[in-house]
Design a protein around this nucleic acid. Sequence first.
DNA 1: TTCGGCAATGTTGCATGCAATTTGCGTCAA
DNA 2: TTGACGCAAATTGCATGCAACATTGCCGAA
Lengths: 239, 239
Amino acid sequence: MQSKIMTKQTSPTEPPRGTRSAYVTELLRDMITRGDLESGSRVNERVLVEQLKISRTPLREAFKILEREGLISIQPNVGATVVAFTMDDVEASIEVLIGLETIGAERAAERATQAEIDKVAELHTRMVAAFEDSDLMSYFHLNQEIHQNIIDAAHNPALSRVYAAECARIRRFRFAGNRDRSRWERAVREHEQIAEAFARREGPLLRELLRAHHIAGWQKARHALEDDRGAEDKAGPPS
Amino acid sequence: MQSKIMTKQTSPTEPPRGTRSAYVTELLRDMITRGDLESGSRVNERVLVEQLKISRTPLREAFKILEREGLISIQPNVGATVVAFTMDDVEASIEVLIGLETIGAERAAERATQAEIDKVAELHTRMVAAFEDSDLMSYFHLNQEIHQNIIDAAHNPALSRVYAAECARIRRFRFAGNRDRSRWERAVREHEQIAEAFARREGPLLRELLRAHHIAGWQKARHALEDDRGAEDKAGPPS
DNA sequence: TTCGGCAATGTTGCATGCAATTTGCGTCAA
DNA sequence: TTGACGCAAATTGCATGCAACATTGCCGAA
């Protein structure tokens, strides 16, 4: 348990920069995304206070934030639990993300600055490099960054905000998409087209490419996750 | 100031049902929506603690929640301010709402149960009654409820959640839309069509009606708000 | 007069203690 | 054996005190 947290820390002696509250919020978010805190499991204040070496006040503030983000659920006088997503919940979120990108893509094609287009092109180049290095972690982050950058190019702060929040909610379920090489290769090709359509400001095309990309990606991820879940059920008894 | 809060309370002796934290969150949200806390103004903890008769802990938790909702902004070690929206910010939010309803409308037309359709029809009837009574407040709430109910009929929890959150953010700017009677009448007619399209499950039509409805409503509201803002600037010196 | 530094005041961030509520367990009766 | 009841332990909700930080106003030097 302790070791899992230690692996997260960038330096052995953790420097809680900023407020404790913001620090612990981010830490918990990562712990949930990484699976250190399991879906559906209770989150005990005392345990976390001891692990993270902070007092209950900032921790409880973090709980409230994460509850609003949809990552945990708080029952008054009972406690917090990590929200357990069904596959349908994730699919619902992806449907929302697709909808948001649908608005975003057309606006971005209209309103993006050249600098923003160049930025996405650069991220894409780096992402391809990560792919060729088989660096899944870097690939994943660059992938997310590309999508967010396209959305941001729509110059709609509300859109950027909502999109980022919804991405964060389901981040933990999106690693599974590119586990087999063939899907991964296809995803890279799709991104190639996406980057080109964005560079050419072809809004409707960009929109449809993004939609297709998400649907294909999710289909793979869903199957992978369902296999995982099946394997888990066989491996350990349900608690 | 005190009096404004008193008008909000449903009973003279406030019964903070549930946790203090949830109670004060809702109270602050209402205070912001109603304009009791002005856009851009600092929000002092001590003042609110004395007004609301609660301690700083639940108040600060409420701040964190409202910050995540996008209603206030917290600068560490400085304090909280009510987020000041520009007209462009509101327009950006509405663009997002339109996008969300675009997804929602088609899904709702496919997936709605008869009970959900009946519910919207009933709300619509009540809304028309409120219109005929010139009960702007009831009208406004029923209006919101209709839109949310249509979205909910899409049976997509993520969508319902995001939509509700985004509505709450800009609620305070949407009163202004139906102030002149002609626009109000037109809005009711538009809602008539919307309710019919929903009842007939005509997804694409519903989608376009909703889009047109929002755009027309916002155009009016924007002008009304700009007039207000102009009047304010003349009335009082900018602080 | 204006600008920089400094003290005084006010405000926020956090830790901790206490009260209220829930949960777990043991006992007893049916 | 099962179910209900009641007490104890654990856990959460909240209030409050203290420390850290920011802001304001004042004073002196240029």
